[in-house]
């Protein structure tokens, strides 16, 4: 019998396949349920590390710099990601502030931190301390990062405010857009490759 690390099990229907040889950007689908079972990402580990460091800086910037600013009869106001979380803390609805804070700041921050940790060691062909725990945690965190939804929310808010007050995008919005794209690229399923590439 072959070594089981040459096998892939489809997580949606439990079919077993021999790992197919894939070229860059190619993906393999499950014959039975059509799910993507394996793909070769277009970024190497060092490139991921570089993008990840960029994402870390953007996240710090986006959390505390204004995303949108409004003007009403000469008075100015602006809000960052952290302000949006803070606005939900008061009153009986504070539980939702925890959910929003987790999905917009805490989860992305943890993802970037863990990835930086793993990839920095991988750069020197080493397994980081806590490698297995970090990989498992990243898998648990993945569905709970919601930056792209917030980006759409910011655009919706601008439209909702026009006519009542003057609303304009601030520097944070562009950083948020860049961060959203980066997170989609670096925090996806592709990082499962680390299991194989780091001995």
């Amino acid at each position: 019998m072959t070594d089981s690390s040459d096998l892939i099990i489809c997580e949606y229907c439990d079919s077993v396949y021999q790992r197919p040889p894939l070229a860059r950007n190619e993906r393999a689908h499950c014959q039975r349920c059509n799910a993507v079972i394996e793909r070769r990402p277009w970024l190497g580990l060092d490139q991921l590390l570089a993008l990840n460091l960029t994402a870390g800086m953007l996240l710090a910037f986006v959390s505390f710099y204004p995303i949108l600013s409004v003007q009403n009869q000469g008075r100015n106001n602006a809000a960052s990601l952290a302000d949006s979380v803070w606005a939900l803390v008061d009153g009986p609805i504070s539980a939702i502030a925890a959910v929003v804070g987790a999905s917009l700041i805490l989860v992305p921050a943890l993802q970037v931190t863990l990835l930086t940790w793993l990839l920095s060691f991988a750069h020197f062909r080493q397994r980081a301390p806590g490698f297995r725990w970090s990989m498992r945690t990243l898998e648990v965190l993945r569905p709970w990062s919601m930056l792209e939804v917030f980006l759409l929310g910011a655009l919706v808010s601008v439209v909702k405010l026009t006519g009542r007050v003057e609303a304009a995008p601030a520097a944070g919005l562009f950083a948020l857009a860049a961060l959203t794209l980066l997170m989609i690229g670096i925090a996806g399923r592709d990082l499962r490759l680390l299991w194989k590439q780091v001995p």
Partner: peptide, 16 residues
């Protein structure tokens, strides 16, 4: 979650 984020952002912005 869109509506939740919109409410948070609007509440943070419109405080006059």
């Amino acid at each position: 979650m869109l509506d939740v984020f919109v409410v948070g952002l609007l509440a943070a912005l419109v405080q006059f």
